[in-house]
Design a protein around this nucleic acid. Structure first.
Lengths: 210, 210
DNA sequence: CGTTAACTGTTGCTATAGCAACAAAACTGT
DNA sequence: ACAGTTTTGTTGCTATAGCAACAGTTAACG
């Protein structure tokens, strides 16, 4: 979506002027936040990469989300009765802005920055929703093939080119699309054999109109 | 999530005082909006039921979302390059509030209601995100059984009771969970046989701790 | 620079989900 | 009240995805 305000200057203003916000740094593999208790805050990923992790009933680690720059997350965005513990893990060094939601609600005329934050926040959130909606559309595709092609198609449009780099490793891609890695490899092979895609390392080229 | 403001009074204020908003009524099966062009508006469902529809590559109708009272939708919440046409269809008589997003952005001190709207909108949006996150968690469950049990578990907690009514018909439930109806029926039968659930008409009782 | 760890790639087997086709029951409207 | 439509329920067949087990390749690191 079009983001008609400068996110960087927005988060900077918010961080330097806003009394209720806090910025923290995290090392790789550190836990940024857990969703066990309701803290009524949300978090904005200023820099780095993080994942929302849970464990399924067999104890296997499951990656629910990949968070990147300007992504927003936090327990305020989840239903309270999630069946398993959710937590956000830094995948790389991260800088996080913590925004206490309730304090922002109580903002008065005195705090000009909260007004500004409230004015701009929807844009940030809307961007996340758009990402999420796209993810849901991917997840609702029936087959491994449909998921791969829908994802490649998005990347192709985003890069304005039939050729593009995968932003994930193949292992992570399988996690993101919630498909089994070896089933995905098998399907990639078929797509290559049928000359629907070309793949050299992490570079994909779409050969046919989808 | 806790909604710490009165949604009804909020939308009423917005609708009666805000010059840029519009309220329209729709009959069953009428198209409320299409997502083909970017209108920079979003829509709030004040009353009724609606569905976000698309068609898959085989021409089968696919229900991506069920919208209920206070749900928010609109093309602003989607990436522009959705591969297929999306449109919102009234499932029952609907009353919709259209909120032009860009005009709201240009809100000035003169328009007190826009300030108020901007202050409250995140709450409305956050509620939708929570619903969406829950849906994603459902969709990431591997098996039909896991999806059903996770959904039933949510309903059980929401109703504070092991016994609850299904808010959907079984056909719609299968659509919502994005599973094949007959596969779902088969699994429901197994769950009954294994005495994990009890089912009489649209009433479900969970018999074991999940 | 050599060892370990992570990622990529392949395959056979099996459980599962999806499809087609159908029957019975429960709502519709006239 | 009865004809038509939608929903529920059942089953056999088949395509597909997921699992296990493994080998080769690349990246990471002391």
């Amino acid at each position: 979506m079009k983001r008609n305000f400068d996110v960087d200057s927005f988060v900077h203003k918010m961080a330097t002027n806003c009394k209720i916000c806090e910025i923290k740094d995290f090392k790789e593999d550190e836990v940024i936040t857990t969703f066990l208790m309701r803290r009524n805050q949300f978090c904005i990923l200023l820099d780095g990469e993080a994942q929302l992790i849970t464990y399924d009933k067999d104890g296997n680690k499951k990656i629910l989300y990949y968070y990147r720059k300007n992504d927003i997350f936090g327990e305020a965005l989840f239903k309270i009765y999630m069946d398993r513990e959710l937590f956000v893990l830094a995948k790389k060094k991260c800088r996080i802005l913590f925004y206490p939601y309730d304090s922002a609600e109580n903002c008065t005329e005195d705090c000009l920055y909260h007004i500004d934050v409230l004015r701009n926040l929807p844009d940030l959130i809307l961007h996340s929703i758009a990402e999420q909606n796209f993810r849901i559309i991917l997840l609702t595709k029936k087959s491994v093939r449909d998921k791969l092609l829908a994802y490649f198609n998005m990347l192709s449009i985003e890069n304005s080119s039939k050729t593009f780099e995968l932003p994930f490793s193949l292992t992570d891609l399988a996690d993101y699309l919630m498909i089994e890695r070896t089933a995905m490899m098998r399907e990639l092979k078929r797509l290559k054999d049928e000359e629907i895609i070309k793949k050299t390392n992490s570079q994909i080229t779409l050969l046919t109109k989808i």
